[in-house]
């Protein structure tokens, strides 16, 4: 958490991190579905919802990088949903999965820093 974060944000941090940990699990489950490749659009839609929530509040708790990475994932998920066939598979492999890796690292950092 950055020093600029408000004291109230510090007080609410445990709740935020609890939610973040649950969200990390939700993303991991959908990521599995995404890698299996059965229905990438549905998995991307679910990841998009979770990423949307993270991007909406992470910066308020001092995790600006986590917020912007979640925003990138949200954006990529929307793109994946708009594609189909080989273009969709390519977008998942080359864009979305690496972005999810980066998001996972940011989530790990946030959770480890607070532990």
């Amino acid at each position: 958490m950055t020093q600029s974060a408000d004291s109230w944000a510090r007080a609410l941090l445990p709740q935020f991190l609890d939610m973040t940990a649950s969200r990390q699990i939700e993303i991991d489950i959908e990521r599995g579905a995404l890698e299996a490749g059965d229905d990438p659009a549905t998995a991307a839609r679910e990841i998009c919802k979770v990423a949307h929530k993270i991007s909406g509040t992470a910066a308020s708790f001092g995790f600006a990088t986590l917020g912007s990475q979640a925003q990138r994932v949200e954006d990529l998920c929307k793109q994946v949903c708009d594609l189909s066939g080989a273009a969709q598979t390519q977008a998942v492999q080359q864009e979305l999965l690496p972005a999810l890796d980066a998001l996972g690292r940011e989530l790990d950092t946030a959770l480890a820093g607070a532990a």
Binding site: L12, Q15, K53, G56, T57, F61
Partner: peptide, 17 residues
């Protein structure tokens, strides 16, 4: 109105301040 409880926390605190 927001489906994210974390946003409620943030908004409530900021508005109170």
């Amino acid at each position: 109105v927001d489906d994210d409880p974390a946003f409620h926390y943030v908004l409530t605190k900021m508005m109170s301040q």
